[in-house]
């Protein structure tokens, strides 16, 4: 049963206040390889490791079924600074 980008998106949206979210399927459709950008105020004051652990925990079931998962976790402030 392939994991859909919308599955990942739903889990994140229902569990975190999200300013910006991108879920990109890089596996050309087989649902095995996702790149995720999450911008959330929930990351404020948390180290990158803590942020990733939070997301790994939320997406435990999904990550165990896919081959590759890349995440970028930013606070709204960091996101604003990164935007050109």
């Amino acid at each position: 049963m392939p994991v859909l980008a919308s599955d990942i998106e739903n889990v994140i949206r229902t569990n975190l206040p999200v300013t910006h979210l991108e879920v990109v399927d890089e596996s050309s459709g087989c649902g095995e390889n996702y790149r995720v950008l999450i911008v959330s105020e929930a990351f404020e004051g948390k180290s990158t490791l803590a942020r990733h652990r939070l997301i790994n925990e939320l997406l435990k079931a999904e990550i165990s079924q896919i081959h590759a998962f890349t995440q970028k976790t930013l606070t709204p402030k960091q996101w604003a600074a990164e935007k050109p």
Binding site: T48, L49, H52, T70, Q71, K72
Partner: peptide, 9 residues
């Protein structure tokens, strides 16, 4: 320390 994403960042 972390995985690949964390190492890169």
């Amino acid at each position: 320390v972390g995985g690949c994403d964390i190492m890169l960042s």
